[in-house]
Computed example of a mutant assay.
Amino acid sequence: MTGPDVITEQTARDVATVLRPLGAVVRIELLTGGMFATTYRVSLGDGRRVVVKTAPTDTDRLLRYEHDLLRTEAAVYALAADRPDLLMPRVLLTDLSRTVFASDVLVVSHLEGVPLVDAGELGAGVEETIQRQLGAFMARLHTVQGERFGYPNRDAGLHAETWTEAFGSMVEALLDDAGRWGTVLPCDEIRAVLVRHRAALTDVRVPVLVHTDLWAGNLFVDPSTGALLGVIDTERSVWGDSLLELAGADQLGRGPAPAALLDGYAAEGGAFGLSTASGATRLELYRLYMSLVLLVEIAPRGYAGDWLAAHRSTAAANLRASLDALA
Score class of each variant (00 low, 15 high):
residue 234 T to W: 15
residue 57 T to S: 15
residue 39 T to H: 12
residue 271 A to Y: 08
residue 22 L to P: 00
residue 231 V to P: 10
residue 324 D to K: 12
residue 314 T to W: 05
residue 42 V to T: 01
residue 216 A to G: 11
residue 55 A to W: 09
residue 266 A to D: 07
residue 21 P to G: 05
residue 97 S to Q: 07
residue 267 A to T: 07
residue 109 S to D: 05
residue 324 D to H: 12
residue 301 R to S: 00
residue 269 G to P: 08
residue 144 V to N: 09
residue 188 D to N: 12
residue 106 L to T: 03
residue 302 G to I: 12
residue 190 I to C: 11
residue 106 L to Y: 04
residue 292 L to R: 02
residue 43 S to G: 14
residue 128 E to G: 14
residue 183 T to W: 12
residue 203 D to Q: 11
residue 221 V to T: 01
residue 151 Y to E: 13
residue 15 V to D: 03
residue 223 P to Y: 03
residue 8 T to V: 05
residue 200 A to M: 00
residue 151 Y to W: 14
residue 184 V to W: 08
residue 274 L to N: 01
residue 116 L to G: 01
residue 43 S to Y: 08
residue 215 W to S: 07
residue 66 E to H: 11
residue 32 T to V: 12
residue 314 T to V: 14
residue 178 A to N: 03
residue 201 L to W: 04
residue 101 F to H: 09
residue 125 G to M: 04
residue 131 Q to F: 13
residue 171 V to D: 00
residue 148 R to W: 06
residue 85 D to E: 13
residue 305 G to E: 09
residue 77 Y to G: 06
residue 40 Y to C: 10
residue 96 L to R: 15
residue 102 A to F: 11
residue 195 V to P: 10
residue 109 S to H: 08
residue 77 Y to M: 03
residue 103 S to G: 00
residue 228 L to R: 08
residue 93 L to V: 06
residue 192 A to Q: 09
residue 156 A to R: 10
residue 11 T to Y: 00
residue 39 T to M: 14
residue 115 P to H: 10
residue 282 R to W: 02
residue 188 D to M: 02
residue 178 A to H: 02
residue 274 L to S: 03
residue 35 M to E: 15
residue 148 R to G: 00
residue 67 H to G: 06
residue 232 I to E: 00
residue 294 L to E: 07
residue 104 D to V: 07
residue 57 T to L: 10
residue 158 L to I: 06
residue 302 G to Q: 06
residue 34 G to Y: 06
residue 184 V to M: 08
residue 22 L to G: 01
residue 189 E to Q: 13
residue 275 S to F: 14
residue 277 A to E: 08
residue 182 G to N: 04
residue 264 G to C: 07
residue 306 D to S: 15
residue 30 L to Q: 12
residue 164 T to C: 09
residue 80 A to S: 15
residue 181 W to L: 03
residue 101 F to T: 06
residue 126 V to K: 02
residue 49 R to M: 08
residue 285 L to Y: 04
residue 254 R to F: 11
residue 178 A to Q: 03
residue 162 T to V: 02
residue 192 A to I: 02
residue 104 D to G: 04
residue 248 G to K: 03
residue 88 M to I: 08
residue 282 R to S: 07
residue 122 L to S: 05
